[in-house]
């Protein structure tokens, strides 16, 4: 790996299995800081497995290949250490944490004065359109789909991630919320140079979160890659012509 290539989230021949069945059959991707890559593909193509394997979720076993963060192999690291290397996952259905508020969570993650944590949270909540009174409430408990994704995006903004994996960020939220979170993430890409891997069914998300590259995912591998125009084409023709759904 050359020095100029080192700064990237790099998947090399990534294979992974779930309950003994191989789902990812060798995925190669390079996401550089400041780039947005979209992964589009039909249900069952392994998109969520890809996101889970990258973050090291229990139950998703990497059986071959490597995951590199800025040149460092994180394939064997536990989830929390991957996070500390700069990986951040927004799940399709974010977990609800009874009895743990955003304030509790942020105080744990950010090693800062409570007052600083509080003001950071409030500022970012206002920016992303999350009611600040929700900050003292249990994380995601009783939240609408839009509130959950706004809250996840708030965390992405303040927890210092360098590469964000967004697993169907656009599911379960309305047009306004989708626009707000996509714009905020696009801003982080521009201003802070984070790299984004956005997994989605639909091109709607990509209208705000303008991808540099679009990859078509099918049967556990990338079958086609192109520029933003590929998303437009897929919207028109479906995945059938884009490389074969499973």
């Amino acid at each position: 790996m050359s020095g100029s290539d080192a700064k990237a989230l790099r998947l090399e021949g990534l294979r992974a299995e779930v309950v003994g069945k191989e789902i990812l059959h060798g995925v190669d991707l390079v996401i550089r800081p400041g780039e947005v890559h979209a992964i589009m593909g039909p249900n069952g193509s392994g998109k969520t497995t890809l996101a889970s394997a990258v973050m090291g979720k229990p139950g998703y076993k990497v059986t071959g290949g490597r995951i590199l963060v800025d040149g460092e192999d994180v394939t064997g690291l536990p989830t929390h250490e991957r996070a500390r290397k700069g990986l951040f996952l927004i799940s399709q259905y974010p977990a609800e944490l009874p009895g743990v508020s955003f304030v509790d969570l942020a105080e744990q993650v950010l090693d800062r004065e409570p007052a600083v944590v509080g003001s950071t949270l409030v500022a970012e909540a206002e920016r992303i359109g999350l009611k600040p009174e929700l900050l003292g409430r249990s994380v995601n408990v009783g939240f609408s789909g839009g509130e959950k994704k706004r809250a996840e995006t708030m965390q992405l903004a303040i927890f210092g991630a360098r590469y964000a994996v967004l697993d169907e960020l656009d599911s379960g939220l309305d047009i306004d919320a989708l626009r707000d979170v996509a714009r905020r993430i696009a801003e982080m890409v521009r201003a802070e140079g984070i790299g984004v891997l956005a997994i989605t069914h639909y091109s709607r998300l990509l209208q705000e979160l303008k991808p540099d590259k679009v990859h078509v995912f099918a049967a556990g591998r990338v079958v086609r890659s192109g520029g933003p125009e590929l998303a437009v084409e897929l919207e028109r023709t479906g995945y059938g012509e884009g490389g074969g759904a499973d």
Binding site: M55, K57, P58, P78, T79, H80, R82, A83, R84, F88, L89, S91, P94, A95, L97, P98, G99, V100, D104, L105, Q108, V109, S138, Q155, F159
Partner: peptide
Amino acid sequence: LLFYLESRGIDPADAERIVVRGFFG
């Protein structure tokens, strides 16, 4: 819940502590 917290960079022992504390909360 543990995975969620760990994916925020919290180590497993702290994640367990946070979940249990929240459970009683």
